[in-house]
Amino acid sequence: MREFDYARADSPRQAVSTHGSNEQAAYLAGGTTLLDLVKIDIMRPEQVVDINRLDLNEIETLDDGRTRIGALVTNTALARHERIQSDYTVLSEALLSGATTQLRNKATTAGNVMQRVRCPYFRDGVSSCNKREPGSGCAAIEGHNRSVHAVLGTSEHCIATHPSDMCVAMAAIGATVTVEGPEGQREIDFLDFHLLPGDAPEREHNLKPGELITHVTLDAPLNNGRSGYLKLRDRASYQFALASSAVIVTLDGDTIVDARVALGGVGTKPWRAHEAEKALKGQQVSESSFQRAAEIAMQGATPYAHNAFKIPLGQQAIVRNLTTLTA
């Protein structure tokens, strides 16, 4: 087998110092991305730092109303947590729409944030792929690009979607990522955490070498907010989103006071639709206002040969979600 060093960390500090600034090192949490990609020879870490022993399994409500989630909280534990279900319904629903029970039992909060793309040209180890081999080109743009390719945030170098459902909900809720690194602790706004592919799709996030996610802290929930996650795909379970929406709204009678909208399955990163939110605020609850917001959300989308349907599908994900939440 391909050999690598394995170390088990007992504290974040120790994990970070073991990892160091080695670009060929990787943190191991649930393993549902890392181990899969190692097995198919796409990721080849020389040093694996197992962080599963770290004490990062808590979900806590902070004094300011925010909710702090430890990096190792599993997707199952997070989805089933009472406060998450009641105050962050959209997050619980997003988590439960993803993967399978078995995977959710293993997958962690930080690992979900860090998951890699499903683009088959990235995973085949052969085709041109700027993520895997910077500068080699993007086989997906002119290739088969129906299911796991984006229409928003794409560049001429990469069009892979970010596959997470959880992150779409977090993008809508608003969150902060706490990281521990060689230079100490810092916080990154969740919306700045994932990067657009631009001309450097191999850079997927804002972590510096060796930095470890220790927590994700959700913004306090909107007062009287209603929220939900709607995921559209071919089959009813165990498929990445073709289009999905995470929506949070607060109403005053039939007037939309506040709205948060984020999209999955259509963007190269968890996609917050700020302009659509602005278009909703102050509007009456109506199909036409939802439709207008949905069109704004998908403005500027670039269709590719097989995924143009994601533009109307993304709009539908928004309109139906809003319709259900405001009914």
Binding site: R118, H144, V148
Partner: peptide, 25 residues
Amino acid sequence: TDYDARNGRPVNNNYAEYVVPVHAD
């Protein structure tokens, strides 16, 4: 099974992207 029209490569050659019905279907 999707093949890349440019080179004949089977694209969705795994259980995640080759979609068969699951229990929920």
